[in-house]
Nucleic acid binder design. Structure first.
Lengths: 221, 221
DNA sequence: GACATCGACGAACAGCGTTCGCCACGAACG
DNA sequence: CGTTCGTGGCGAACGCTGTTCGTCGATGTC
């Protein structure tokens, strides 16, 4: 097949539809215009077609989002340097990072046992590191459950800031003001500890340390 | 048309619209028919009115769901017996229970710093117990953050089973079969540890123990 | 050359959240 | 007592949504 006639040139180089192309278009829209803009019509328009065409490759919107989540997890580096614990820490942090970068994707991970190819690779790596740490099978299995839950939750919380106006600091400052106006007799501890509640610091790193320490110290059953 | 004098009596004792009534109607629909059925039109019908009438008392659907979440949290008992750690454990477990009972409400808690009156009461109580445990202000503050995140996530995961057909065991069995069919060379750890991954046991209690142990052992900064 | 298969897609359906503008009613005011 | 005014209630509508159906055309096979 040689150079196309002019009629095809109007829309040049229209890539053929495919599941991959749809997933990538979805991610592009999600990153550019947010979760509300991620509609089947909008994805179809990005690919220069109609919404009905998508359903050949994608069962429905949920299926599309699950595929997008797994695509996002493909970017998680599975290997790192350091002790097993440092590597595990880095792996979980990278997973949170990858999910929280795309608004709303973490919520998908929260509601289902992971089955995506890349999600499973992450989990497999987590299991390997936990076993390397000397944990027994059951504790390692439950730990990976807990770490997955925590990753999804942390990412969901983080990506929620993308939804609301963007600025995380603004949202936190609003909450601080709200807490400052609470009646001290009804909420004595919140009132007393308000400076600590809104103190800056790396809570994500601390949270992960808490989890890892707790896991090491708490054998299942 | 024919104005029916009897029509007022046909639906007797029609309570006047109020924010409380709307919230309660929403919870009733959510529990009875699920998250998909929770539409403004459906809530309005439950109260024998039209959707536009709701917007006098409720800003929008998100506002309604936030109010429903706080109403659900009103049922969390704030006091229990035992050591501070046992009380804290019970408090968190009760919070998860209350949220997971209503499909989709936990997702609301994940995306925002809590501001509802009842949510704040729970948090205030958590802070009190953590301080009773001897933690410094910052660690207690970060711990309450982490516990809140974990509660919402655990409840969201739990309530997701309400969405899918209902039976948790069915979903888990499906996942087990899926994992069994994975290529062992690509996912060696998952394949090897599959029995442990799907082993029964009280993972929620274990997860909470992990968190509490980790918190006690990991001072912030 | 005839046939079967399957991707593409225009059109439509049923439903959604939310807004607008009008109605009725009760309180406030002169 | 009459009038005005604010406000809860709500019918109707707008602009969307996810998804399905049936048709069309191209491609690969016998």
């Amino acid at each position: 097949m040689t150079p196309e006639p002019i009629s095809r040139r109007a829309r040049p180089a229209k890539a053929p539809l495919s599941r991959e192309a749809i997933v990538r278009a979805g991610l592009a829209i999600l990153d550019r215009d947010g979760l509300d803009a991620l509609t089947m019509r909008r994805v179809a328009k990005e690919l220069d077609t109609g919404p009905a065409s998508l359903y050949v490759y994608v069962a429905n919107r949920d299926d599309l989002m699950a595929a997008m989540l797994d695509e996002a997890l493909a970017r998680v580096p599975l290997t790192a340097e350091g002790t097993w614990r440092e590597q595990l820490h880095a792996l979980v942090a990278a997973t949170v990072e990858a999910m929280s970068r795309h608004e709303g994707l973490a919520a998908v991970a929260l509601g289902a046992i992971p089955t995506g190819a890349n999600a499973l690779l992450v989990i497999d790596r987590m299991l390997a590191l936990l076993k390397q740490g000397g944990l027994d099978d059951i504790t390692a299995a439950w730990a990976v459950d807990l770490l997955h839950l925590h990753s999804a939750a942390a990412a969901a919380e983080q990506s929620a800031y993308l939804t609301k106006g963007g600025k995380e600091e603004t949202v936190v400052a609003d909450a601080d003001r709200h807490y400052a106006a609470l009646p001290a007799d009804r909420y004595p501890m919140i009132t007393a500890l308000r400076p600590a509640l809104f103190s800056p610091g790396d809570r994500d790193t601390w949270g992960l340390d808490v989890l890892l320490s707790g896991i090491l110290q708490t054998p299942a059953r």
